[in-house]
Structures are given as structure tokens and as C-alpha cells.
Design a protein around this nucleic acid. Structure first.
Lengths: 138, 138
DNA sequence: AAAAGACATGCAACCGATTTGCAAAGTTTA
DNA sequence: TAAACTTTGCAAATCGGTTGCATGTCTTTT
């Protein structure tokens, strides 16, 4: 993705396109799997972890990325699809490979509806499947 | 539950019924919602956190309890149903209330099946719903 | 019963991920 | 340009989870 495209993603979400942010957004856009804070930190090797952290928080608040709790103890981040509002209906399943440790967004696999007990109100949902990804299943 | 019942649960899973373990198991059995390590620590007020931690680990390994990752950053624990083997088929949905912060096992709500992409192998699953529980929805 | 072994408990300290405080640098606005 | 605000960088705290190691307890063996 070129700078113009990246900038317009940020603008669309009212986030000022600073150099740092464009860099991080670009990096995220290149990833096949969701990235943790430390994944990103390693890839850049010159950026401050806290700045990275705050950049991700800003992105998350503005629904540029969503965070994924895959149960490994470190949050992963991945780009939201265009116009995503992170509502239960927008949510997809995530898959964590126990071998290569990568976590994928299965964007084509929406979380199936579950009836809740009477009176419970659903706001958010998280569904993570774990096992072997296609590369590791062989 | 009386001591005899508690002891037999432990024996059934080959865990030596020490005083500590009976105490913790009893406490867990009394809970309506899943408990974190610190929840339990507060309830007892005289036990060492590490001992509690190791007790829970032992219980978990022997499938007396299961741990729940509700996304809050602290693991919750709840009793397994009798004979539970913690296989994907045994799994139920969990619900975390964003108001009262309690996490419940919805044991009657099994996790719906999701087709995975070709070649992916499923080993484990986690599904957490978040929102308002019946008490907080009002 | 004494000694040996095995497991359980308690305390201190560490670890990794995340978060906060605060000062410095960069931008925007009056 | 100066004041006001935002972003960035570094240090350090917090928090949940975990390990090492000494001590205590219980069981088994001699």
C-alpha cells in the first residue's frame, strides 16, 4: 500500500497521519497473521515500545485495527476491514496455530449466533479456535 | 458439600485430599461465578497466593476445574462437571458481565461448530460472550 | 522408632506484558 | 512568534503469573 492509501485510511478514521503511524499501519498491512506488540517491536528494531503501544491503542480506539485475545497472554492486532464498527455482527473467528504460534483472522468465518439465557444482553464476543494451521498440518 | 463428598471428588481424580485442597475445592464449589486467583485469595485472607496457585494448577491438570480466559487478563476457574475430559465436545460458552465483572459458565450452551478452512485441524476452542448478565440488565 | 523418600506448603524473588508519569519534540492556532 | 496541544521517548511502576528453594508433613522402608 502506498502512502496515499495509508494516509486516507487514517484520515477516514480521524487519526492524524504522523510518520510513525504510517509506518506502523504499513507494517500491519503487510502481515499475513495478527501481530503482537513485541512482534512489531522486533520488525522495526528502532522504535520505542511505548510509542508503538500507544499507536496501537489509538488505532484500536478508532477502529483501524482490532485486538485479538488468542489466549497466549499477549494481545495480537490486525487491520479491521473497511467500515468495520467492531460490532458483534462484524466479528469473525480467529485461529491460533499451536505449532507456528501464528494467529489468523478467518474473516470469512463469522461467529455463529448463540442463544443466551433470558435477559442476558450481548455486547461483544470472542471466539478463538486452536490447533494446526494449514501450513503446519502438512 | 461435606468433606466426604469433597474428598471423593479429589480421590476420583487421584489428587491427595489435603486440608488446603479440601478448603479450596469447597470454596470453588460454593461460587456462583468463576473465580480468579485473587478472588480466592481475598476470600480466604490467610493463604499464600503461590500455594493457591499451585493448588489450582493441580486441580486443572486433573480436570477437577477448568480455566477460563474471559479476556480480562486474569484467568478464572470453575468446577468441571463430573466426568468432564475438557475435550472440544465438553466445552461450553462463557459469559462475562461488563458491569458486575463476573464470569459465568453457561454449561447448557455448547459452543456451536464452525467449519474451518481446508486442512486446519481443531484441537481447542474458546468462546466468550460479553455484555450484561441477568442481574445487571435489570 | 529412626531414616529416607516423596510430596505439599510458604516465602522471596523473577518474568513478561502492559500501563503510567513526565519531560522533550513537533504541530497547530491565535 | 508565542501559547496550546499533540505526539514521542525514556524510566519506572503495576499486575498476573511463575520459579527456586527451604521447610514442613506424611508415608514407606529398614
Amino acid at each position: 500500500m502506498n502512502d496515499k492509501q495509508l494516509t486516507s485510511i487514517l484520515n477516514a478514521r480521524s487519526v492524524k497521519p504522523t510518520a510513525m503511524r504510517l509506518l506502523v499501519l504499513d507494517m500491519l498491512a503487510q502481515q499475513e497473521a495478527a501481530s503482537s506488540l513485541s512482534d512489531l517491536e522486533e520488525q522495526f528494531d528502532k522504535v520505542d515500545k511505548v510509542t508503538l503501544y500507544r499507536t496501537l491503542k489509538t488505532f484500536e480506539q478508532h477502529k483501524i485495527i482490532h485486538s485479538i485475545d488468542d489466549g497466549t497472554g499477549s494481545a495480537k492486532y490486525a487491520l479491521c476491514s473497511e467500515g468495520c464498527e467492531c460490532n458483534p455482527g462484524d466479528l469473525h473467528v480467529h485461529f491460533h496455530c499451536q505449532v507456528c504460534k501464528r494467529t489468523f483472522c478467518l474473516t470469512d468465518y463469522t461467529i455463529p449466533a448463540v442463544n443466551l439465557p433470558h435477559k442476558f444482553v450481548l455486547k461483544e464476543m470472542n471466539m478463538v479456535m486452536k490447533g494446526l494451521c494449514e501450513d503446519c498440518a502438512g
